[in-house]
Simulated scan of single mutants.
Amino acid sequence: MRNIRNSELSDRRSTAADAKAALLRAYRAAKEAAEPTREAKQAERLAIAEAREARRAEREQLKLDEQNRIEAETAERDAADAAAAKAETDARELADKNRIARVLEDEAARKAERDRRYANRKARQG
């Protein structure tokens, strides 16, 4: 049923103000009651964020370690390849020098044989 009471403007205004004040008191009471749980939740969120950051830093460190390991392996492989190439070049140069030395020795032996034959021929003629 309707409230047929005749209320004045001032009554309505004071009722509205009382209602607003009651709502504000209820809000403040609820906020104070939730303060311990809010702090606990905030601390929990902070701990989760720190753990997340620690895991991220660990992942980055693992990536960095892996990258450094790969770079070290690549450097070792390149050094081994360079050493093998140098050894091959040195061996080829040594083989070339040996071949040249044999050619010179053979040439000298041929010349010596030719000179000996020439001297024998001259000795027989003379």
Results as ranks from 00 to 15, higher is better:
Lys20Val: 12
Glu8Gly: 05
Lys31Gly: 06
Glu66Asn: 11
Gln67Tyr: 03
Ala17Lys: 10
Glu73His: 07
Arg114Val: 04
Arg2Ser: 12
Ala16Ile: 05
Glu50Ile: 00
Ala87Tyr: 01
Glu35Phe: 03
Arg110Gln: 08
Ala72Asp: 09
Ser14Lys: 12
Glu88Lys: 04
Arg116Val: 04
Glu39Trp: 00
Ala109Lys: 11
Ala30Tyr: 08
Glu39Gly: 07
Ala30Gly: 04
Ala47Gln: 07
Ala87Trp: 04
Asp18Trp: 00
Val103Glu: 15
Ala95Met: 03
Ala91Gly: 02
Glu71Gly: 04
Arg13Met: 13
Ala54Gly: 04
Ala112Asn: 05
Glu39Tyr: 02
Met1Val: 12
Asn68Gly: 03
Glu58Leu: 00
Leu24Ser: 13
Thr37Arg: 15
Tyr27Thr: 07
Ala91Arg: 01
Glu71Lys: 14
Arg13Ala: 09
Arg121Leu: 10
Ala17Phe: 06
Ser14His: 03
Asp106Gly: 00
Leu104Ala: 07
Ser10Pro: 01
Ala91Thr: 01
Ala108Trp: 03
Ala17Val: 02
Asp90Lys: 07
Asn3Leu: 12
Glu60Asp: 11
Arg13His: 06
Asp115Arg: 09
Glu93Met: 13
Arg102Thr: 04
Lys111Trp: 11
Arg28Ser: 14
Thr37Asn: 14
Arg28Val: 13
Lys31Trp: 13
Arg92Met: 12
Arg38Leu: 10
Asp18Ser: 10
Ser14Leu: 13
Leu23Cys: 08
Ile100Gly: 05
Glu71Ala: 09
Thr15Phe: 07
Glu66His: 04
Ala19Val: 00
Thr15Arg: 07
Ala80Pro: 01
Leu94Asp: 13
Arg45Ala: 03
Ala21Gln: 13
Gln42Ile: 04
Glu73Ile: 01
Ala108Gly: 01
Ser7Ile: 15
Arg124Cys: 07
Ile48Ser: 07
Glu93Tyr: 00
Thr74Met: 09
Glu8His: 09
Leu104Cys: 01
Ala112Arg: 06
Ala112Thr: 10
Ala85Leu: 11
Asp106Thr: 03
Ala40Lys: 14
Glu73Lys: 05
Arg28His: 10
Arg56Lys: 14
Glu113Cys: 04
Ala82Glu: 13
Arg77Lys: 14
Leu46Arg: 12
Ala47Lys: 03
Lys111Ala: 13
Arg25Leu: 12
Glu71Ile: 00
Glu107Gln: 08
Ala16Met: 05
Ala17Glu: 14
Ile48Arg: 09
Arg2Gly: 09
Lys86Glu: 11
Ala82Lys: 08
Glu35Leu: 06
Ala75Ile: 00
Gly126Glu: 12
Glu32Leu: 10
Gln67Asn: 10
Ala49Ile: 02
Glu76Gly: 01
Arg117Val: 06
Tyr27Pro: 03
Leu104Val: 00
Gln67Trp: 00
Gly126Trp: 00
Glu39Ser: 07
Glu105Asp: 12
Ile48Gly: 04
Arg13Phe: 10
Gln67His: 07
Glu60Asn: 06
Asp96Cys: 00
Ala109Asp: 14
Tyr27Cys: 11
Glu88Ala: 11
Pro36Met: 02
Ala26Ser: 14
Asn120Ile: 05
Pro36Trp: 02
Ala84Leu: 07
Thr89Ala: 13
Arg2Cys: 06
Ala34Pro: 10
Glu44Cys: 02
Glu32Gln: 11
Arg56Val: 01
Arg2Ile: 08
Asn3His: 08
Ala49Val: 01
Ala57Cys: 01
Arg117Phe: 08
Glu93Lys: 11
Lys63Cys: 06
Gln61Thr: 11
Ala26Thr: 10
Glu93Leu: 15
Glu8Lys: 08
